[in-house]
Simulated assay, not measured.
Amino acid sequence: MALAFHLVTTTDPDLAADIDATCRLSGEFTLRSGQVSSEYFDKYLFEADPLLLARVAREMAQLLPTDTELLGGLEMGGIPIATAISQLIGMPALFVRKEAKKYGTCKLAEGPAYDGRRITLIEDVITTGGAVRDATNALRAGGAIVDTVVCAIDRSPEGVNPLADVGLEIRPVLTKAELDAVRSQG
Rank of each mutant, 00 (worst) to 15 (best):
G104W: 08
G104C: 03
T105Q: 15
T105S: 13
C106E: 10
C106W: 08
E110H: 07
A113I: 09
A113N: 05
G116S: 10
R117N: 06
R117H: 13
R118I: 05
R118N: 14
I119Q: 05
I119P: 02
L121M: 13
L121S: 06
I122V: 15
I122P: 00
E123V: 05
E123P: 01
D124F: 08
D124I: 15
V125F: 09
V125N: 12
V125T: 13
I126E: 09
I126F: 08
T127F: 07
T128V: 11
G129M: 09
G130M: 07
A131D: 04
V132Q: 03
D134P: 05
D134A: 14
A135P: 12
A135V: 07
A135L: 09
A135T: 06
T136V: 14
T136F: 04
A138I: 10
A138R: 09
A141K: 13
G142M: 04
A144W: 00
I145G: 00
I145Q: 07
V146P: 00
D147I: 01
D147Q: 10
V149Y: 00
V149P: 00
V150N: 01
V150T: 06
V150S: 01
C151R: 01
C151G: 03
C151Y: 02
A152K: 01
A152C: 15
A152L: 14
I153L: 13
